[in-house]
Design a protein around this nucleic acid. Sequence first.
DNA 1: AGCATTTTTGCATTCGTATGCAATATGGAT
DNA 2: ATCCATATTGCATACGAATGCAAAAATGCT
Lengths: 356, 356
Amino acid sequence: MDSGVKKPGVTSSQVARRAGVSQSAVSRTFTPGASIAPKTRAKVLAAAKELGYRPNAIARSLITNRSRIIAVVMAYLENLFYPDVLEELGRLLVKENYRLLLFTGFIDRNSDPVFDQLMQYRVDGIVLASTSLSSELSEECAAAGIPVVLFNRTTERDAVSSVTTRNREGGRRIGEFLLAGGHKSFGYISGLESSSTNRDRFAGYREALAEAGYDDIIVEVGNYDRAEAEAAARKIFARPDRPEALFVANDHMAVAVMDVARYEFGLAIPQDISIVGYDDVGPARWTSYGITSMTQPIKRMVEATVSILMEQISSGEIEAEHRILNGELVVRTSARLPKTGIVEVDGRRLYKPSKS
Amino acid sequence: MDSGVKKPGVTSSQVARRAGVSQSAVSRTFTPGASIAPKTRAKVLAAAKELGYRPNAIARSLITNRSRIIAVVMAYLENLFYPDVLEELGRLLVKENYRLLLFTGFIDRNSDPVFDQLMQYRVDGIVLASTSLSSELSEECAAAGIPVVLFNRTTERDAVSSVTTRNREGGRRIGEFLLAGGHKSFGYISGLESSSTNRDRFAGYREALAEAGYDDIIVEVGNYDRAEAEAAARKIFARPDRPEALFVANDHMAVAVMDVARYEFGLAIPQDISIVGYDDVGPARWTSYGITSMTQPIKRMVEATVSILMEQISSGEIEAEHRILNGELVVRTSARLPKTGIVEVDGRRLYKPSKS
DNA sequence: AGCATTTTTGCATTCGTATGCAATATGGAT
DNA sequence: ATCCATATTGCATACGAATGCAAAAATGCT
């Protein structure tokens, strides 16, 4: 009842004494590849087990100058895409013997406390999902030799790597799909206008439509937010020239838009309106929604992220690397089907037009 | 290009030299409440800024024997309840100047590597959500003076605290609600049968029904899993004596069950069947589902969790504490309404029968 | 100014582990 | 048994910051 102190914990010296060896021997026992005789090692392990010893990662970090911790900054967890990413990141990092220090919420202000904390723990790498970093901060990381990977975002900035999918091609594919479905008027509910992801998706969509002669897209801003997406949907659906086809910048918003369409405007999907989303997130697959959506291959994206980190950590070279993966357009029930171009792969229906 | 080494980073000694003071002075500058003259402090801060110095949290932890890291073990992130919890935990811990080390996936086996890692980082506390801990492990934590809090689960085990809601009363309330709605036959789709949460919810439900003379509840196991819940729903809906009312142990499963009811069995909700869930998770609020559901007050649950941790950390006393909060039954459209007992509070409709 | 307090400072040590180096032990070949 | 190459060990030190202690400086009081 006195205290307020955590119990000290067993140290390598205590184990050493118990095993009748030096502290160095204990250290070497727990250092893979170190020079230690099997017999000594066994003695040490026995003593360690008796005392309940575990190497102190903090002390180790201090001397190796490696924390084996990766900071992950992630916000917007209400979009199931990100929890999925997080779970996969956790899995892979553990496999590489790294720990995941999570920062939720955004890094927005300039001299950010979150960033400070992150640097104080001397993390070995940083993953930024649904968040960016000011240029000063990213340069500071580069200067400190800490690799930074943007997840599902990209930037021109030096020394910051990124993992994305071909958002522009994705947007284009969606445009082509809707055109092939025979639609004649088009709308778009955008994500955050400042995000590269949103810009690219829209650019591709617009290109595809423009090539077919459709230059007027009805655009409203949803900012990747449910409530804003609902508001945007209401504006679009209330128009006399309501579009026949609507691309919503991600599924998280598309779900909300579909509810507005059906329950506030009495629209039948896809008879009255076709809706296409992006991410192929959990709810997109639920029967109530069945959203036709561009897939983002989370597993491969996370693999790429981790591999960039591992590579840069072990080489010490922080040269920006940009991995861009392919997605697929999964066809479900939220949009009218084109006559051709739909193929079935592993039980999923994809849109793969067979042009040159 | 040679290297593979992280840049060493600025140390307190370098700052000290630059500022013309001792290393101690630098340390005291960054230690709140330490004895340092304002003038000296200013000099140090200036020098620190010039050099880009940040205290090394690792080195600090080593000597203070406090990592200011809380380990959070969480699985089952596809249930949006948990990402919500995680976000809130992150927010509160940062406010208390703690960091969040996340472990995804379950702790199942006995001598678990995850647990080892967690102990190696000398975390100051542990939060277990959607996961438990074997008795040996929890005792080991207690012995090491590390507080452990179970989130949304409980246990009889000494030295492990817990935060839950009144699941039994919740189940009972749901039973009463369905009875008041005039239903005559009842079903239950269970969560993990080993979880305290599931046991308590079902116990309360059964009690309420038994008191009204209904002893036969049709039960199928969903294990808190979407696919299993769908299978369970199919079994129940295919019965000739399909129940009029169905309590699904959480919303994550209830969503799946509703889709099966509507799209595979053509059932109208709530005309043909009433469905009630638990958690009041995001999708429960979406118009397509509108699930009548027992709320779990995430914010207050997280507050309780953090406050238990902070208290035990600062006192050094690891005495198991069990906080049990109240939930409310939010009434939406997935279940037939009783004639009385529905009140509106802050725009939400709640079921609050006015019995003694 | 002189003395007593209080505040501020620097010194030296400590936390628990890793590692270069020199010393010692081991094994093999002769 | 002797010698040499190799494997293993312990010693001593370093990592970066916090802190008890004593010395030094600043302040208050008469």
